[in-house]
């Protein structure tokens, strides 16, 4: 491996350096666009006491739900959880801590972390319990809440295509949180469906430039559908 080639040869190598107690950011919305093989590798590896930030926490037996099985997650930062029974049980038993964060704040907190912005003001949540204990400020005639950036020790991302330099394109709504997660990780690991040579992707079509990406691996994906809904 040389220069800008971000490829690693195994999932073990992709997640090397992830340690107990670290903060992990994970892309995906529901089960759409989740880095399913990287999550499976974390389960295999057995890393514990993780703080995981992701919009949701998967379902029983798939996605981030896998990391609940061996109690690898200590704290979950998400906008919507509880699609899985195991999550509910660990929460009620006090084995799992949850920080519920408005979805737009979660995305912007990650973007801010990647963009070098330590905090930002937003009207979201003003006057609600989400704003309790946080600084507020009046701009014009509206109140705003100071929300802090959310950086990660590791970020795991699911892309569609990438070149070997780690320039990534996402497919359809599988983009969701992935580009923001990619920006916010100290170590950003991306798994994709196809890796091509530099120059094969249109530079203007790149969603995540390789500068944000540290490691890249090509995988195969189950892409489980959470709510299959078809026209009658």
């Amino acid at each position: 491996m040389a220069g800008f080639d971000k490829r690693v040869s195994s999932y073990e190598e992709a997640m090397a350096g992830l340690e107990d107690g670290m903060t992990l950011l994970a892309g995906g919305f529901g089960l759409c666009g989740i880095p399913e093989n990287l999550i499976a590798e974390i389960k295999r590896k057995g890393t514990r006491d993780l703080t995981v930030a992701s919009n949701n926490c998967g379902v029983d037996g798939f996605g981030l739900g896998l990391l609940l099985e061996d109690c690898q997650i200590r704290k979950m930062i998400a906008s919507y959880v509880g699609e899985n029974a195991l999550f509910e049980k660990q929460l009620l038993d006090g084995d799992l801590e949850v920080e519920l964060t408005p979805q737009g704040n979660l995305a912007e907190r990650m973007r801010a972390a990647g963009a070098g912005i330590p905090a930002f003001y937003t009207a979201t949540g003003y006057g609600t319990r989400i704003a309790e204990g946080k600084e507020t400020r009046l701009f014009g005639d509206r109140h705003y809440v100071l929300e802090e950036a959310l950086p990660g020790d590791f970020a795991i991302v699911k892309g569609w295509k990438a070149d070997t330099y780690g320039n990534v394109i996402y497919r359809h709504t599988a983009r969701n949180f992935n580009p923001l997660v990619a920006m916010a990780g100290k170590v950003t690991v991306v798994e994709v469906e196809e890796i091509v040579a530099p120059g094969e992707l249109d530079p203007a079509a790149i969603h995540t430039p390789g500068i944000y990406v540290d490691r890249l691996i090509c995988g195969t994906f189950e892409k489980r559908i959470e709510k299959r809904t078809v026209r009658g």
């Binding site: 759409c32 497919r171 709510k227």
Partner: peptide, 19 residues
Amino acid sequence: PFPTEEQVDPDMINAGKQT
């Protein structure tokens, strides 16, 4: 609208997580 059986794509969902 919701997809036909042939159009179902796991990478295309709405905020309710429906295809």
